[in-house]
Nucleic acid binder design. Structure first.
Lengths: 254, 254
DNA sequence: CCATCTTTGTGCACACGTTCACAAAGACAT
DNA sequence: ATGTCTTTGTGAACGTGTGCACAAAGATGG
């Protein structure tokens, strides 16, 4: 545990901004679709529309990779697919392990998007002994005991955690100890990892909550002119009720 | 193409920055855990650690909600739980529909995090007639034909799309036409929606690709002594003989 | 070979987000 | 009451991301 570095330096990687990196897969997908339709070239305007972004942003993003376009024409689709793939590291094979083969883990194992882009599911791992050997998505589920061996034997550096929240940190620790340096976490927990290990979090309920916020705001604005009481059913829960604004709970900060 | 606005007006919600809204669920989760352990108050430092963020950021975030803390003491846990819940709109009941009951849809239906936070699965919908009536997570799967009726009858304003990419836009259009104004999209497609409809995207393979980028960088830095050019620096976990590495399309933009 | 037209690549200005650092506010002991 | 100690709330500096607008680069046609 080095004391020098702060926790998550967000690694402004090497001239390529993080925000750009996050969009490259988006461009890649749009380009792959064009490639399959044998479209030879595409303009920044068209590609941006397909990827759902602003064209100026797209051009700036690409400018970080180099000058791969041709003025007056656009971008060569095949060439760009290769360049982005290479930049993202998808020209090599990335073995991944998925830990926690519940509903979500099984869904991930079956998800075609993984295998199709340089990722290979090296193993499915679960703590439940009764799962061991059971085939999921064509692979036999391995027991947690084998975790370290699997990671070392396959040179796995990316791990996916789809366990319940309670087990996530423990699994994470073992993954890291065994050599994994990138983790995709689906468990609703904050993972603590040593420096040099990347963690990305996907949290289903957080996304819904963000939507609820905007939804509430929309409903509120809409009902501004209408009577004070909004239409949706009110869930008082503990009986606190949801009265008008001033009607806050009994508990005040002492 | 009713692309609508290309940029999000969401930022100006109500003085609360989008980045802050995205963190509120994180704080809420940490606070709920504290509440269950009957911790009465918490300092910004402690809570920030639990949520995995910087304490100054947390305080600034809370300052957008109001002055809910007590100097020299910290924040009252219960009070803050309520305030954040209310701000996020979780004090009311949000019926949601999940469309596409494959592996992922089933996982979502079973995911406890939904029900536990003001969200109620109103219905599971699938296009496959043979799924109809089959119970998933205790609910009978409905056929797509009933989509509009379900949404109207239940006052659903939030929809979750877990269909294959090809069906997503069509489902989206039907959801929107039926009255849904917020969509959580798990299909790897860019959805086009009219103004006033919010879409959030969760893309599993994109997250992995971002990890691969950083992983490649780490591997490259480690094994590189004299970086002269953006040389491929191929170094994978496997033996590497992954084929089309050297014989890449040397296609140049014509 | 020149004129025109299209589209890239980017300088610049602005908006948004993060972090620091510190004064103000309150708790608590004496 | 008064002083000390803790912790919030926030002004200000800084860094990152976004979008406009335009010059430069190249294609295309006469």
């Amino acid at each position: 545990m080095a004391t020098g570095r702060t926790h998550r330096p967000a690694t402004r990687s090497r001239g390529i901004p993080e925000a750009t990196v996050a969009r490259l897969p988006l461009y890649l997908r749009a380009l792959t679709a064009l490639s399959e339709r044998s479209v030879p070239t595409v303009s920044s305007e068209e590609l941006a529309a397909a990827a759902g972004v602003n064209s100026a942003k797209l051009r700036k993003d690409f400018s970080y990779l180099g000058s791969y376009g041709t003025r007056g024409v656009g971008y060569d689709v095949e060439y760009l697919v290769y360049q982005i793939s290479r930049e993202l590291g998808l020209t090599q094979d990335w073995p991944v392990v998925i830990v926690g083969i519940g509903n979500l883990g099984a869904a991930l194992a079956n998800y075609g998007g993984f295998a199709s882009r340089g990722f290979r599911v090296a193993a499915l791992i679960d703590a439940d002994p009764s799962m061991a050997g059971k085939p999921v998505a064509g692979l036999p589920v391995k027991h947690t005991d084998e975790l370290e061996a699997i990671i070392e034997d396959n040179g796995v550096s990316i791990g996916v955690i789809a366990t319940p929240a309670g087990a996530a940190q423990q699994v994470c620790d073992r993954l890291v100890a065994a050599g994994v340096t990138s983790i995709l976490n689906f468990a609703p927990t904050v993972l603590t990892v040593p420096d040099g290990v990347d963690v990305r979090k996907v949290d289903l309920s957080i996304e819904l909550q963000i939507l609820a916020f905007h939804e509430q705001r929309k409903a509120g604005e809409e009902a501004m002119a209408a009577p004070a009481s909004p239409a949706p059913a009110v869930r008082g829960g503990t009986g606190g009720g949801k009265g008008p604004d001033g009607d806050v709970p009994a508990v005040m900060p002492a």
